[in-house]
Simulated assay, not measured.
Amino acid sequence: MSKTVGKAVRVLEVLAEEPRGIAELARALGVHHTTALRMLQPLVRGGLIARAADGRYRLGLRLVEYGQQVLDEIDLRVAARPHLLALAESARATAHLVQLVDGRAVYVDKIEGASIRTWSRIGRAVSLHTSAAAKAILARLPAEQGERLLAGHDFTRFTDRTITDRAAFRAHLDDVARHGYATDRAEFEPLVHCIGVAVPGLPAAVSVTLVRTGPREPEPTEQLGALRETVAAITAGLGSAIG
């Protein structure tokens, strides 16, 4: 990657976190504000970045167009969407579709089925060692491919329930493979619990996310039957070639 392209990518990454004024952006990039302004100008002209009324810079609508085009080209997302809608409605919870894209597990679709919003966002990568969907995918991958994905992975602790030991996580994936589903029990966000099931024949998974604020709240495993039916419907829609 050339230095110019690398700088542009870094600008987009910083602004993806939140809109920033030129001074804030310069500090985040570690450059003088005049240098930051020069870096912004071609991105603004190309519609990749826009300047808001308050003077702060944010990601531009052109990126939305490009992102939508990429998502529309993912056949799995198209096939899965009606089933995700039905799952989110029946579960009164958030349904996600996660797929391996360029070596990362990425949210390729999300249907909000509850009033409580979650951290997830379409196009955002998930944490391999905490996400139920990512675990479900990893557990079904050939061992060599799974090891490559985890080789440089940082087992960051997000909550007191996060698995941070590599050997313990491998053993956990063995359990996932044995049971046919994976869970995230507040391992990334407190109170947020998920259950995920892999899509047969594809490096992808569907998950249901619930926010549990007390012991009487529904357990994610209560959605296992509906989740498996959803995955089966998606698989049937894609055809037997992936089975």
Rank of each mutant, 00 (worst) to 15 (best):
A125V: 08
V126I: 09
G123E: 05
A171R: 09
V98H: 10
P19H: 03
T164F: 00
L61F: 15
I111S: 09
Q41P: 01
R178M: 09
G243D: 13
G103K: 11
I116L: 10
P19Q: 09
G47W: 08
S2I: 08
E73R: 13
A50C: 09
D102W: 03
V5P: 07
V208C: 06
G214Q: 04
R38E: 13
L149S: 01
R228N: 10
G30P: 05
E187L: 01
R161L: 00
G60A: 15
A167M: 03
E222L: 07
R157F: 01
H193W: 09
A151S: 08
A143P: 07
G123I: 03
V31H: 04
A182E: 04
A28F: 03
A95L: 07
D175P: 03
T183S: 04
V192I: 15
R10F: 07
L76Y: 01
D160N: 09
A143E: 12
P218V: 12
V5T: 11
S127L: 12
R121Q: 06
H179W: 06
S127M: 06
G60N: 14
A50V: 09
R216T: 15
D174C: 01
R92I: 05
E187G: 01
R45W: 12
G214S: 07
P190S: 02
A143I: 14
L87D: 10
A233S: 12
A93E: 13
H83I: 02
L128G: 07
H32K: 12
A105R: 02
G214W: 10
A8F: 06
G6C: 05
A52Q: 13
Q223E: 14
G180Y: 11
A198T: 07
H32Y: 04
A86L: 13
G46Q: 14
R38I: 05
M1N: 12
S127N: 14
A205L: 03
L84V: 10
G225W: 11
L61Q: 15
V101F: 02
H193M: 06
D184S: 11
P82E: 02
A88M: 12
H193D: 13
A186K: 01
D174N: 09
L87S: 14
S207G: 08
K135H: 00
R140W: 09
K7N: 10
R212C: 04
G214T: 02
E112M: 04
R161T: 00
Q223L: 09
A26D: 09
L210H: 15
A182I: 04
A226K: 12
M1E: 08
G180N: 08
D75H: 07
V44K: 13
T118K: 11
G225T: 14
L202V: 07
T162H: 00
A233W: 01
A226Y: 05
G239H: 01
E187N: 01
G180A: 07
A136H: 03
V192T: 12
A167N: 05
V206K: 04
V98I: 14
V231F: 04
P142Q: 02
I137A: 05
V199A: 04
K3Y: 01
E18A: 14
K135M: 00
T221E: 14
S127C: 12
V70G: 10
R117Q: 11
A177L: 12
L191H: 06
Q41A: 13
L15R: 10
L202K: 02
L141E: 11
D75Y: 13
Y57P: 11
V126G: 03
G55A: 08
R92V: 06
E89R: 14
T4Q: 15
I137N: 04
G196V: 06
R157M: 01
A198Q: 05
A134P: 05
V206F: 08
T130N: 00
